[in-house]
């Protein structure tokens, strides 16, 4: 008797529904919950301030970017500007990540010499 995971379809969710569910959760976290995140300095920044090396840090060269500091420039409502920046960031990361991993797996297929022996 096979007790392979795929033999219990009633408890299975399709990969597509996992993708959609995960994306919705990421949107919720970056777009909404992030508005309630702590504004206190994070561990590194706090230690840098306490120990006296915070001032050695320089502003990012991208401080003028329209999404700098996780806020869409030009939107006055802080929660909206931050939430929108979060949603854009989730989409951007998803797109760049998916494209990168898709491209490298395709490239790996084209170079069978670099694939582990016994595969394909």
């Amino acid at each position: 008797m096979s007790v392979d995971a795929t033999s219990r379809p009633q408890s299975r969710r399709t990969t597509r529904s996992v993708l959609i569910g995960g994306l919705l959760l990421a949107f919720l976290l970056a777009g909404f919950v992030s508005g309630y995140a702590s504004g206190a300095p994070d561990g590194l920044e706090k230690v840098a301030g306490d120990q006296g090396f915070l001032e050695s840090g320089r502003d990012s060269g991208f401080a003028g970017s329209p999404l700098a500091d996780y806020a869409v420039r030009g939107i006055d409502d802080e929660r909206l500007a931050g939430g929108l920046a979060g949603v854009i960031g989730v989409l951007l990361t998803l797109a760049v990540g998916t494209l990168l991993f898709w491209a490298v797996t395709r490239l790996a297929r084209r170079r069978p010499a670099s694939a582990p022996p016994g595969r394909e």
Partner: peptide
């Protein structure tokens, strides 16, 4: 990574990156 990742799993890997991005926003 590319040797062990299925081409069809690329969106799952991309989603993982996106989820980490979202998680890092939540101080």
């Amino acid at each position: 990574g590319s040797a062990e990742l299925d081409e069809r799993a690329a969106p799952l890997a991309g989603l993982t990156a996106a989820f980490v991005f979202a998680g890092q926003m939540l101080n």
